[in-house]
Simulated scan of single mutants.
Amino acid sequence: MLRRAAAELVGTFWLVFGGCGSAVLAAAFPDLGIGFLGVALAFGLSVLTMAYSVGHISGSHFNPAVTIGLFVGGRFPARDILPYIIAQVLGAILAAWILYLIASGQPAYDLGTDGLATNGYGEGSPGGYSLVSGFLIEVILTLGFVVIILGSTDTRAPQGFAPIAIGLALTLIHLISIPVTNTSVNPARSTGPAVIAGGLALQQLWLFWVAPILGAVLGGMLYRAIAPAAARIDPNITGEPHRTPQP
């Protein structure tokens, strides 16, 4: 468990540092910035690269909502949920703290003005979207994300391609929702920057736990309802997905 938790911490660190770092450091310049597309790709690539790197150790969740969704989908034991979530949140906070230290090296950077790629609604939304809009899009996109994860790692899916599907899915999710909430679908990703930034981001953090977890639970339930039981991975699995032996 210690090795698996460490893999989750490292993977979540990479996700937050790569994804939020692209928004804070590389998208901040009007002429040289990478824009929404670049930030979306950075989040997708961070998951894809770490899924191939440490997925065989921990299953590459990097997201409390995914961990809970996999449990609901019959892929993950309840006893391992808390250690995974603790590791994920710690990795996210560490990444956000180091990212802040780096960003502070630019004299013009101001945490209150420039932020740390925090998530929000209303005043905290990049496009000024309401709480209801933010809640709905986070639920729906997390639901879809969990279905994609469960489906791409199913025993009947093409083997070895799951990280690509999952990384591209996260890229698509960001392309849709960056203007609405700055995209969470991941309570750990939201918690790290919010803890460092404080203020409004911390006040609105509740939504980015409640909505993604609700979406993940619904996604797990939906996949269990539509996927034949024989196509599911062994529910006791704790590491890399593998084929269930067939008679």
Rank of each mutant, 00 (worst) to 15 (best):
M1H: 13
M1G: 12
R3V: 12
L9W: 12
V10L: 15
G11T: 09
G19A: 13
G21T: 09
V24N: 11
A26H: 10
F29L: 06
G33A: 07
G33P: 12
I34C: 05
G35C: 11
F36S: 08
L37A: 14
V39P: 05
A42M: 09
L45P: 04
M50D: 07
M50Q: 13
A51C: 11
Y52N: 05
V54I: 05
F62T: 04
A65F: 07
T67K: 04
F71S: 08
R79N: 04
I81N: 07
I81Y: 11
I86C: 10
A87H: 01
A96G: 11
I98P: 04
L99I: 08
L116N: 00
G120K: 02
Y121M: 03
Y129D: 05
S130V: 00
V132S: 04
V132M: 09
S133F: 01
F135G: 02
F135Y: 10
E138D: 03
L141D: 01
T142S: 02
S152P: 03
D154I: 02
T155W: 00
R156D: 12
A157Y: 03
P158L: 00
P158E: 01
Q159V: 07
A162G: 02
P163H: 00
I164N: 00
I164M: 03
L168A: 13
L170I: 15
T171K: 09
L172Y: 04
L172V: 15
L175F: 12
I178H: 01
T181Q: 11
V185G: 06
N186V: 05
V195N: 06
I196P: 09
A197I: 01
L207V: 10
F208C: 07
F208N: 09
W209D: 10
V210G: 10
L214C: 11
V217H: 13
V217K: 12
L218R: 10
G219P: 11
L222C: 08
L222S: 05
A225C: 06
A227N: 12
A230Q: 10
R232H: 14
I233M: 09
I233D: 02
I237T: 14
T238Q: 14
